[in-house]
Design a protein around this nucleic acid. Structure first.
Lengths: 233, 233
DNA sequence: TCAAAAGTGTTACAAATACACCCATGT
DNA sequence: ACATGGGTGTATTTGTAACACTTTTGA
């Protein structure tokens, strides 16, 4: 089949494969999405996700790493494939299948200049504008996945800076689920996981009293990932 | 970008897109997978999933429907995209990205002749042989997804015939999770969902006493799908 | 009459939820 | 001194898990 089909698409056109990144961030207590002014047709000028064609000698996930590195300057951004979008008419220009990835970023971390030089903007999730092509659909699917995933992996933690406070963590989960959580129950749950190390420092940026900073116990965190885990809140 | 890139891949080779189907079935109390003797290179003669290239003017999910229809003779097989597999070296012949789909079949339903004429075989899940390319990986990922999905959607029901008994339903879940379940707890849970209608008929194929047949209350079932749902067992 | 699967309830334990007040500090 | 967000404990409810016997009937 390989040989007969090496020119499978030649008489009818070409198949393109791209990958697009749904980049979630968390800042000022709000869930945000990184979007870009589109510089190419179709839909030039619209906001869109950032993406790229997949090179012929490049793994799909490598392509996503490459994009994320280019945009954020960080080379170990957490990301995971969402799914492929393969409707014929999804891109009016030509036949292009896009593999959507969702990525979680610690907004503190990323190189702000790089982001700005790419015409990017962090949109609050609720205020998201119409995006190019089928990108709004991708984003909705991405959020659904994020929510589901957050229940059986401590995935939300990927969105926080190295050191963070419990109220910040709670605000993150409130942003993901779009509802208020009870702080006592939340703390109880988080503590029971045994993955946080309380530091002696306080963060006073959001209150006079200050909240204790915490960091990860990566060892326990990894154990937790393996043993399967439930963060139903 | 569309115009500059219309020949993006021309100097280096072509990008192929295929879709492969992980077809789960359930029969004689066991979870099974439909596999095929591969008739084409690479890996000719090995068992493999059934798949096809995606036509240039064909939606990816339409391609999957087409394959499933061809093989099983059924046109409304339940299936869902798993994810795209995009490693460069996944197919040694040429660059081909495959979008894996997982499908659930009521083994009673399908056209047995069609399946046989395609060189297909229902393998017991535990006895699965080495499959072509990265298909074993796809299958493992597919099972993981099936298990996770079965917890928040009554997806397992798709694998059963129109009329089925509670013990059959339980055996199905036991096959999916590969562990014994307590029949009293199982029945309690199933009943609490309010999606089954008990019929007056009995199925006596597996016991002298016979077990009551049930069918779906599709209305309640759909409500359940929407309201989010928990089938932790 | 017996073998084999179907069907049925209760108790113990664990987890989720609901709920309200004092604390520390900068202004 | 007061406003603001941080931090803490208990009681109730809900759901999960463990557990064993009786029923039906064809062979």
């Amino acid at each position: 089949m390989a040989k007969q089909l090496i020119d499978y698409y030649s008489h009818i056109g070409k198949m393109y494969v791209a990958t697009d990144c749904i980049i979630f961030g968390f800042d000022s207590g709000e869930l945000k999405l990184l979007v870009f002014k589109r510089r190419v047709e179709p839909n030039k000028g619209l906001w869109s996700l950032i993406g790229s064609f997949v090179e012929i000698d490049e793994d799909v996930d490598k392509a996503a790493s490459r994009i994320l590195k280019e945009i954020t300057g960080i080379s170990n951004v957490f990301f995971e494939q969402l799914m492929a979008y393969g409707k014929v008419e999804r891109d009016p220009g030509y036949r292009c299948i896009s593999i959507a990835q969702y990525a979680l970023i610690r907004i503190d971390d990323y190189d702000e200049k790089l982001v700005e030089s790419h015409g990017a903007f962090w949109y609050k999730f609720e205020d998201l504008p119409t995006l190019a092509l089928d990108h709004n659909l991708m984003v909705l699917d991405g959020l659904k996945r994020l929510r589901r995933r957050a229940k059986y992996q401590p995935i939300g933690f990927e969105l926080l800076p190295e050191k963070f406070t419990i109220p910040q963590l709670q605000a993150l989960y409130e942003a993901i689920y779009q509802r208020k959580l009870d702080s006592r129950n939340f703390r109880k749950k988080v503590n029971s996981l045994n993955v946080l190390i309380k530091l002696d420092e306080k963060d006073k940026t959001s209150s006079k009293r200050g909240a204790y900073l915490h960091k990860f116990n990566h060892e326990n965190y990894n154990k937790l990932l393996l043993s399967g885990f439930n963060f139903e809140i």
